[in-house]
């Protein structure tokens, strides 16, 4: 366990020591700041509650998209970057199994997702307090729910990015394909909704907000339990593919 923590520390440092590392945090800081400034100066009299504000900063259809893209871009190079730098050769000749090394990379990905999300929450809370004061209705439980929905969506997408990074060995291709997937997903939902099998597709199950009170599931017969099962199956398949390929690969 200790050695796994050490490996994850290594992976985290590889991310964090990059020169542009702070840019993601800068963007996440500027977004709520921008929203607050615009609301304050152009929509006079509008008062924003902190729950509402925090939710909008991380919601899938709000600032959450930006958060998702940042997570995807930052984790895209986790595996492919090692191939492109050539450091993979020195990394894999250590007394650790390839599975363990890949697992530590996935752990670093999750840590990055969590850290960036926490940063977004803290920053948006502070900005809201500064601009609009402590007010508004709703409770923190609503915020945590939004955190959960955004996290499910982000973990699924970043896991796909992770797999692509293993498969393509190219950061550029990984980011390209992944962004395509994000944009295609809405279209796919639109086009395939008439087919019965579509409910088994990943894209149809990513947004769990549809099971909220007042929400409408995308298709008949879909329940929260159903979606969670489908998502879990996809996640297992994605990770199994990544680990299998990474373990078997001849590193040339």
């Amino acid at each position: 366990m200790y050695s796994f923590l050490q490996l994850t520390t290594n992976e985290w440092l590889k991310l964090a020591k990059k020169r542009g590392f702070f840019i993601a945090f800068l963007i996440i800081l500027l977004m709520p700041l921008g929203i607050a400034v615009v609301v304050k100066s152009f929509l006079e009299g509008t008062e924003l509650g902190y729950v509402e504000f925090m939710q909008s900063v991380i919601d899938i259809n709000g600032g959450g998209t930006l958060y998702l893209f940042l997570c995807m871009i930052y984790t895209a190079s986790l595996v492919s970057g090692e191939h492109q730098l050539g450091t993979i050769k020195l990394l894999l000749i250590r007394p650790h199994s390839r599975s363990k090394i890949l697992a530590s990379k996935y752990a670093a990905l999750l840590v990055f997702n969590i850290v960036l999300l926490l940063f977004a929450l803290i920053v948006s809370f502070i900005i809201c307090i500064v601009f609009f004061g402590m007010q508004g209705e709703g409770s923190m439980i609503d915020v945590w729910k939004t955190v959960l929905y955004t996290s499910v969506n982000t973990v699924m997408y970043t896991s796909i990015v992770f797999m692509l990074s293993v498969l393509t060995k190219s950061t550029g291709a990984t980011i390209g394909i992944a962004l395509c997937l994000v944009f295609v997903s809405d279209l796919a939902v639109l086009l395939l909704a008439k087919y019965e099998f579509a409910k088994y597709l990943l894209f149809f199950n990513l947004d769990l907000r549809m099971y909220e009170e007042g929400g409408v599931p995308l298709m008949k017969g879909m329940t929260l339990g159903f979606s969670i099962t489908v998502l879990a199956a996809y996640l297992i398949a994605i990770l199994a593919t990544s680990f299998y390929v990474f373990k078997k690969r001849d590193v040339a």
């Binding site: 050490q6 520390t9 440092l13 000749i93």
Partner: peptide, 29 residues
């Protein structure tokens, strides 16, 4: 029990030499 350099030794160029060595030190207690 193996030390190796396969082709050119490639490092994380954005890190210092010491940070690079620390990477490998963390992998062998």
């Amino acid at each position: 029990r193996v030390g190796a350099i396969v082709e050119n030794p490639e490092f994380y160029s954005y890190m210092t030499g010491w940070d690079n060595l620390k990477q490998y030190q963390r992998m062998i207690p």
